[in-house]
């Protein structure tokens, strides 16, 4: 009898195929989060707070508890949830527009208070759902629908390094940046997510996993060329690794 070694996590509804674009790593990350909470045996104790944007598309595919926060406010919603109900494991799932643009105050404030939940932050350097506008993490020179000549530092400022910004705060427990561009990094992302959840369960406070990804559609590249752009440009601007781990 054949033994099943690998299949998609049951935390995604069996009959559903996500609406994410080909090669989009939102899909990958949704899978990884599901695998982690399944392996940790905490599916029935976990709930997600989704941001607005491509990150929010998950709501129709997940098979476990989730809600959608107003754009930028996921960290505030998660604060209310976790403070009112500490026994449940909460994570926010946000893109760079949601977390670092409109939601920057909520993100920094929750981190500064050391709120005991986990943030999964997907950094693809662009606004996805709304069609490719400039994001706080867009690289200098990278074109966007609202920066047609590309990001110009004098006009649009510089790409924001969220982990490093939050690293200036005393309270955060764990700040790590990973990617899902190759098998090795996928395993590292999974380990990082797992560690963040473990810290949350141990009550150690605010953890954030920044995952640098591609956006083939809005980068105007096919998924494989987008991988190359990711490796040659995004990962140079956003070096992977642990920024802080209080252990």
């Amino acid at each position: 009898m054949a033994e099943l070694l690998y299949s998609r996590t049951k935390t995604i509804q069996e009959d559903k195929v996500s609406g994410f674009c080909p090669g989009c790593m939102h899909s990958t990350i949704m899978k990884l989060i599901g695998e982690v909470i399944d392996e940790m045996g905490i599916i029935d104790k976990t709930a997600a707070v989704l941001g607005i944007g491509c990150c929010g598309l998950q709501m129709d595919y997940m098979a476990y508890d989730n809600t959608t926060a107003p754009h930028g406010r996921a960290c505030a919603v998660a604060t209310g949830l976790k403070r009112a109900n500490p026994d449940t494991i909460y994570y926010t799932y946000q893109g760079d527009g949601d977390l670092a643009s409109i939601g920057l105050a909520e993100t920094v404030s929750a981190a500064n208070r050391g709120e005991n939940f986990t943030v999964i932050f997907v950094n693809n350097g662009i606004y996805g759902m709304t069609g490719g506008q400039l994001a706080p993490t867009t690289l200098v020179g990278m074109k966007a629908s609202t920066a047609p000549k590309g990001r110009i530092a004098e006009e649009h400022g510089y790409p924001m390094h969220v982990c490093e910004v939050l690293d200036k705060l005393t309270a955060p427990q764990y700040l790590v940046r990973t990617s899902c561009n190759n098998p090795g990094n996928i395993l590292k992302t999974k380990q990082a997510i797992k560690k963040a959840f473990e810290y949350q369960i141990a009550g150690k406070g605010f953890s954030l996993v920044e995952i640098v990804t591609s956006c083939p559609t809005n980068w105007g590249l096919d998924s494989l060329k987008a991988l190359d752009f990711l490796e040659e440009n995004m990962l140079k601007e956003y070096p992977l690794g642990v920024i802080r781990d209080k252990g």
């Binding site: 604060t79 209310g80 949830l81 009112a84 105050a105 909520e106 404030s109």
Partner: peptide
């Protein structure tokens, strides 16, 4: 109970959105 001074009114209403979603009178 839980009291939080939010960083803004915007954050505060969203914290209530969260707490009430957990079934607490907020």
């Amino acid at each position: 109970g839980t009291f939080i001074q939010g960083e803004s009114e915007v954050a505060s209403i969203n914290m209530v959105y969260g707490a009430a979603s957990a079934g607490v009178r907020a």
